[in-house]
């Protein structure tokens, strides 16, 4: 080889832009921007067909009834209410801070460190009943407010005893708090108004 440095010829990169444009457009077309998020819920297990629906006897004081009619109006514990007031009402019901005899029975139990003795209402049940013509948005609003009530209570509990946000706690402590405030939202079995099924 001759001693002189050989120059490498410049690569022709003018088509690079076209190629990357093509890729860009491909991804723009095939992807969607929306992230999937939503309100996570759990359905109750199905009732075997041979089993009769039993009316479980729940003490009236332990029951919080939310009814939504076909006009998307709310009836909470027998009184009309706006969705925005529902969360506070639900929180008061779940906690029963003043040991009101009309609100669920308060038990005190030792939950270990760092909780100690905590007053809670293990027997409370929130019942949501809706009409066939209720709007989906109205139904979800109610579900949302009830879940928000639980989330706020858990957050408050985490701040009070652990001085941390609920999400920052380790799994075990979260489980204990979930035991103090168990999500008990029951939905009425839809009634069958005629029809073959």
């Amino acid at each position: 080889m001759a001693g002189g440095k050989k120059k490498v010829p410049a690569l022709n990169a003018s088509s690079m832009a076209d190629i990357s444009f093509l890729l860009l457009i491909f991804f723009l077309v095939t992807t969607s921007m929306d992230v999937s998020q939503g309100l996570a819920r759990r359905l109750p297990a199905p009732i075997p067909p041979d089993q009769k629906i039993e009316d479980t006897d729940i003490n009236k004081r332990n029951l919080f009834v939310v009814k939504i009619n076909s006009m998307n109006q709310l009836l909470v514990q027998g009184q009309e209410m706006n969705v925005r007031q529902l969360k506070e009402k639900a929180k008061e019901f779940i906690q029963n801070p003043n040991d009101d005899p009309n609100l669920p029975k308060v038990f005190t139990e030792d939950f270990g460190e760092p909780f100690g003795m905590v007053a809670y209402t293990p027997d409370h049940v929130i019942s949501v009943q809706n009409d066939v013509d209720t709007q989906y948005q109205a139904y979800l609003d109610v579900q949302n407010e009830l879940v928000a009530a639980y989330n706020e209570l858990r957050e408050e509990c985490a701040q009070k005893y652990c001085h941390k946000s609920f999400n920052e706690l380790d799994e075990e402590t979260q489980k204990v708090i979930q035991k103090i405030y168990p999500q008990k939202i029951s939905e009425a079995e839809p009634k069958n108004y005629g029809g073959s099924k």
């Binding site: 309100l39 359905l43 297990a45 199905p46 209720t134 989906y136 979800l140 949302n144 839809p190």
Partner: peptide, 28 residues
Amino acid sequence: SNTRMGVIADIKQALRRAYALKINYAAT
């Protein structure tokens, strides 16, 4: 969001029968 709950209730019952109990209501 304007769907009537009758349809949603039917779907929920079908999901229960199929033992798909973990559900998620998509929302923004």
